[in-house]
Design a protein around this nucleic acid. Sequence first.
DNA 1: TCGAAGTAAGACTGATTTAGTCCTAATTTA
DNA 2: TAAATTAGGACTAAATCAGTCTTACTTCGA
Lengths: 150, 150
Amino acid sequence: MKVSKKAYYGLRAAVSLADADGPVSARELAERERIPEEFLEKILQKLRRSGIVESKKGVEGGYALAEQSVSVWDILRALDGPVRTFTPPLGKGTLPCDFPSHCRTNDVLRRLEEEIEKTLSGVTISRRSERNQESGMKNEEKAVLSSPDS
Amino acid sequence: MKVSKKAYYGLRAAVSLADADGPVSARELAERERIPEEFLEKILQKLRRSGIVESKKGVEGGYALAEQSVSVWDILRALDGPVRTFTPPLGKGTLPCDFPSHCRTNDVLRRLEEEIEKTLSGVTISRRSERNQESGMKNEEKAVLSSPDS
DNA sequence: TCGAAGTAAGACTGATTTAGTCCTAATTTA
DNA sequence: TAAATTAGGACTAAATCAGTCTTACTTCGA
């Protein structure tokens, strides 16, 4: 049970992008974060297809966060695929319970999935510019990963 | 991010053992749960070395839960190894933060680990005989995976 | 005391996944 | 148009997963 290197790199890249001003090229980002460049490019492309970052080609191009704020959950799901704690490919609703132990085991694992999702969705990466503009009301218990405004 | 087949089988085997009366042989257990026998044996041996089940050789031998109650967390850790969400082998205390994004990323992942541990530790598999004898006081919010006393 | 029913443990294997690399476009801007 | 950049597919070495095979060793009952 682990987070892949791909996701770990992706997470760090996103945090780095959140702290940056304009678009950052893959090369630059790779250097900043000490991530193999070609590999990072693949990661960024996946994040782009998931709508998490946006890219601009050409001379002054690069990558930037697409939304004001992304959750860690979104990034992990985009890169590592869906969290599937139980191996048989079961949709949310239908759990075939051939044997008594299956149902109960699957039940726990599903509960775990929900817990993981809840935890990870609560942690977000926000762009500096947009920080603290989000929640209109009182300061929600929402952790932010990117660098604090100091 | 997933639970291995090994762990999934192990979980089901443990649930099945919890519901059984005496020791159950690997062969019997494999048949009940539709798990490849030889593979299950490996799994049970790992669980034994971790002190989760105990074994008895010989004619009426087999495997049984060692403790009255085991948490899902214990089983998963025994079979899948430690949950290591971040790839660099970092101990609990020391996080080398070469770059700013690392610390913050590692922080989240560590928080995730704790959350997963908390969730999974709260779900236990208990032997029928020992059910409801554990918590002396009020009925704690403790989920039990094995079959309910009916 | 022998044989059958068990567990114990290590070596081996095929398939899949991970973590990349390599190469060839396609775009954009100066 | 040249340089800087992303886009995407094919490829690969190494690790991990999911088992299997083989060869013990142990216990109990007849």
